[in-house]
Amino acid sequence: MTPTISCTDLEVTLPGASGAVNILAGVNLSVAKAEFVSILGTSGSGKTTLLRVLGGLLPATGGEVRCDGTPIQGPPDGVVTVFQDYAHSLLPWRTVRRNVALGIEARLGRAERDERVDEALTMVGLLERADEYPWRLSGGMQQRVQIARALATRPRVLLMDEPFGALDAMTKASLQDQLQQVQSLTETTIVFVTHDVEEAVYLSDRLVVLNGSPADIGLTLDIPLPRPRHQISTKERADYLELRHRVYEALGHTVGEPARG
């Protein structure tokens, strides 16, 4: 089976203040259909760069990126990125409904567009706020609007760049559960960037840890926890704790020693 989205020998060099900086080197990743893969790493490790390359927002310097077997140039159809900075991603001059319609309004007729927008807003539980402006909503709700906007395009792959990074712990937990539901409903492939170990273990089918400079994939870990997962019971399981332990170790933490970096 061809993977939905993959990269082989990926290399990315970006211009920096003091010459070119090699961010990623020799990254191999392939994500299967309906799989939930998290990319973990300390800040500055190149997680976001990797996601931007997969989303076609940044060209690779070397190696190959494919989506459904086709090499990508620019953002491929059906691959949508959800950004951490929801405040700048939503258009303040459009209502929630019209923000969600942004990706589909040029391609679909009025009736189908409205239907898809309603469907996407229902999935994130914001249908009754459809006619408000996004800046009147809380941070968590704004991020749900951005997710709904991506879902309205019925994406094959959803790339999420620390989507819950700017939210408080309780909002984060409820959005994580909502995202699980959405994925089981739509069978969307999700690549999820985060620096939160618990979040990555809780949500993923598989997680990869980026380390080094230039970064490559240091650890790949399957997460065989049963689904649906639950914020309390899943996080109390011995195998959850064991997986969490291994990820922390891969990130450079050692038991009995204070965290470094």
Binding site: L57, D77, V80, S89, L102, R149
Partner: peptide, 8 residues
Amino acid sequence: DTPRTLGL
């Protein structure tokens, strides 16, 4: 980046 990823 938003309109690019949405394919506008």
